[in-house]
Structures are given as structure tokens and as C-alpha cells.
Amino acid sequence: MGISIGKIKLKNPVMAASGTFGYAKEFEGLVDLKKLGAIVTKTITIKPRPGNPMPRVCETASGMLNAIGLQNEGVEDFIEEKLPYLSKIGVPIIVSISGDSIKEFCGLAKRLDKEKGVAGIELNISCPNIKRQGLIAQDKNATYELAKKVREKTSKTLITKLSPNVTDIVEIAKAACKAGTDAVSLVNTFLGMAIDIETGKPRLANITGGLSGPAIKPIALRMVWEVARNIKKPVIGMGGIMTADDAIEFLLAGAKAVQVGTANFIEPGVCEKIIKGVEKWKKTR
């Protein structure tokens, strides 16, 4: 069951996805945290961010839209308040980071590079809910430039998280790999929206948000397959994984590991179940 992603050794290929697992403490007692392959923490930024106005989430058919807006307390709070707990769990901790500029990403990477409790960094260049002219992950040159600059600042395992809101995800994945990222993770959420027909207003205050959950699984799977057959570096697949069978589909599509996201909200112990199911499947192969 053990695999490696960059320098990180995981005892199984199932990780909790960023933004759906808080800083792990929220799940204490609901899931056996030490059983996880790795934990990717909620995205942090240099300075605290208050996040978007309400409503921030709404349910859609077999999915949900969110526009949280990267609410977090900033990197220093993360290191002081959250990392000590996370480092004691005994599984690799991958820290998701975001910023408004290359400088901010680099600053975060440099700061986290000193922390022993951090195994890897995931570049969140694909959050659809922050105001900016397009996402970094929608431009291969911007992706390359960012990943390359961050690579220079850290020796930790570097994962670039890709957006599905692109015409050709393969070229973005290739740019990230060329820049020296150790792996790519995909997909982040799909940009979507929902309208309340009684009020005529959007159901999210941000108007648009990111769609996640089982509704996106077939598209996510197709993208993972496309990327995996075109790059040599490990692909971490995600998008609507609810069960071990879903995770196995991603592994069969070429993913070396998977991340479980939205399912954690509905069934906080789901990662353990998925790990068991994947283990069983591996044994029979």
C-alpha cells in the first residue's frame, strides 16, 4: 500500500483534501487520523483572510457549491496554533498555500521550509473564489513561473494543484512539471452557480462558486486520465470520491494517490473506509 510522492513516504495512497479537513483537529474522534496516507491542510495565506460574505455554500444535485474565500488565520497562526497538533498525528502533513502574488507564495514556502512538521507544500493556484483576473492555473506560463520560483525557495516536496476550468489541462500539468514540481494534484472545483428562483438571486453571495462532490467525478476522472498518460511525475487524483470504488477508479485512471474532499463533510470517517476498501482491492490484484 505504501507509495512515495517526491520525498514523502505514505503508508497508503489516500489523503484528506485541502479545505475539507480543516487542520485535522476538527476530525479528532470521528476518524482515526493516524490511518490516513497524508493530510492536506486548509489553504493558508501570509496574512489572515476573513473570507467571503454569506451564504458561502449551497447544495446542488449530487454536489455542492462553495465560495468560502480562503478564510484562514495566516501562516504564523498556523505554525503556532495548528502545526504542533498536526505534527503529532504521525502522518505526512502537506500544507496548502495561496497568495495574491508570486512573492507571497515564495514567502510562504520559505517560511514553511524551516518547519520540521511540514512534509510538503501544495500550491493552490486554482481556487476559483478569490477576485483576480483569471487563475494562475489557467495560464501555463504563469503556472511555470510560479512553480519555478517556489521550487527555488523550498526543498520540501512540492505539489501543484490544478484547476479543471481550462481548455487543456495537460499543458498546465506539463508546465508545472517542467518547473520542478514533484507531483500534480487534480482537480480543484469547477466554477459553477445556482439561482434561487423564488428570489431571483444567486444562492451564493459571491454569485459563483466551486462545484465539488460526486457530480464532478466523471469529468475529474477524465482529466486525471489525460494528465497521467502525458506526464511522468505522480498524479494525485480527486473529484467527487465518496467510496473506495471511486478511489479505485482514479487509481486505475493512472493516479498514484487520491484525495478525498467533500465526502469528509458528509461522513467524517469516510477516509478510513476508503483506505480499507483500497487495501482489499490491492490484495486481490
Binding site: 480543516g22 476538527e26 454569506m54 451564504p55 458561502r56 455542492m64 468560502i68 469528509n264 463533510f265
Partner: peptide, 10 residues
Amino acid sequence: ACGFGACMGC
């Protein structure tokens, strides 16, 4: 979404 502080939706 979650009810226990993970999603930050509420």
C-alpha cells in the same frame, strides 16, 4: 456543509 468547523461555510 459539515457542522463541525471543517468547511467554514456557516
